[in-house]
């Protein structure tokens, strides 16, 4: 793990995506995490150098965003949603069980360095609650048992596949995608999960379409 000349080149490629260089800072920091596993002082210094900022200006950005880690993260970041809806539906129970099962607290990494456990805020999958994320891939409709089995598989080095995405890659591999370097996995997983199709399936059964909406009703008639 080191920041090399090729890292600099990739950072210059990120800068070229934007009309103004500083806009590249967030993806550049994702790239630092891809290379280093977390945001290191060297990574901050490199971003500052390439963007003509002070390291204090870069550090101020790093500390604002929750995805930037200032300590080493395990190969697998496990985020359990404990915002209200997931918490009530079972997220609190899952998070408590994983803390005990992995013998770690919030934002801590297992002794073997494989898993960092953290509670996360709403991850926009409320219709699949309770939800947890592994390296920012969805694991929908979880239970205490399924969550424990999931982390056991990760620790044993077994393959784990997202319920709506690809086989889980490492934290650093995923950070490259966040930096804007695609990994070619966009085609993995279904177009939509079951809950995403709940309304469409029903519409198909009922024969409902937007085209059959009363297109001949003039707006004036609806105002009445």
């Amino acid at each position: 793990m080191a920041l090399t000349e090729s890292t600099r080149e990739e950072m210059r490629a990120i800068i070229a995506r934007y009309p103004k260089p500083r806009s590249a800072l967030l993806p550049m920091l994702h790239l630092v995490q891809a290379e280093e596993g977390h945001v290191t002082p060297e990574g901050v210094a490199l971003c500052a150098e390439l963007l003509d900022l002070t390291t204090a200006e870069v550090a101020a950005v790093v500390t604002f965003y929750s995805m930037y880690k200032r300590r080493p993260v395990g190969d697998y970041h496990v985020g359990v949603c404990t915002n209200t809806l997931c918490a009530v539906l079972g997220g609190d129970a899952i998070f408590a069980a994983l803390k005990e099962h992995l013998d770690v607290g919030n934002d801590e990494t297992t002794a073997d360095g494989t898993i960092t456990l953290e509670h996360v805020e709403c991850n926009a999958a409320c219709d699949y609650a309770p939800v947890l994320m592994v390296n920012w891939e969805f694991f929908d409709n979880q239970t205490v048992e399924s969550a424990k089995e999931l982390v056991d598989r990760l620790r044993a080095g077994q393959e784990v596949t997202s319920t709506r995405g690809p086989r889980v890659r490492t934290f650093r591999e995923v950070e490259r995608v966040l930096a804007g370097f695609p990994d070619g996995l966009a085609g993995e997983g279904p177009a939509a999960g079951p809950a995403s199709l709940a309304g469409l399936s029903l519409a198909r059964q009922r024969g409902d379409t937007a085209a059959t909406a009363p297109v001949d009703t003039p707006p004036a008639a609806k105002e009445a």
Binding site: V88, D127, A195, S196, G199, A210, A213, P214, D216, K222
Partner: peptide, 28 residues
């Protein structure tokens, strides 16, 4: 405008979640 109401026109995605039998997206 033929869909929706006078001041709130069109279709939209309603997202049902929580203690409901079939949570999910309903475009209406």
């Amino acid at each position: 405008r033929a869909m929706g109401t006078e001041k709130s026109a069109g279709f939209t995605l309603y997202s049902l979640s929580g203690h409901v039998v079939r949570p999910g997206q309903y475009e209406a």
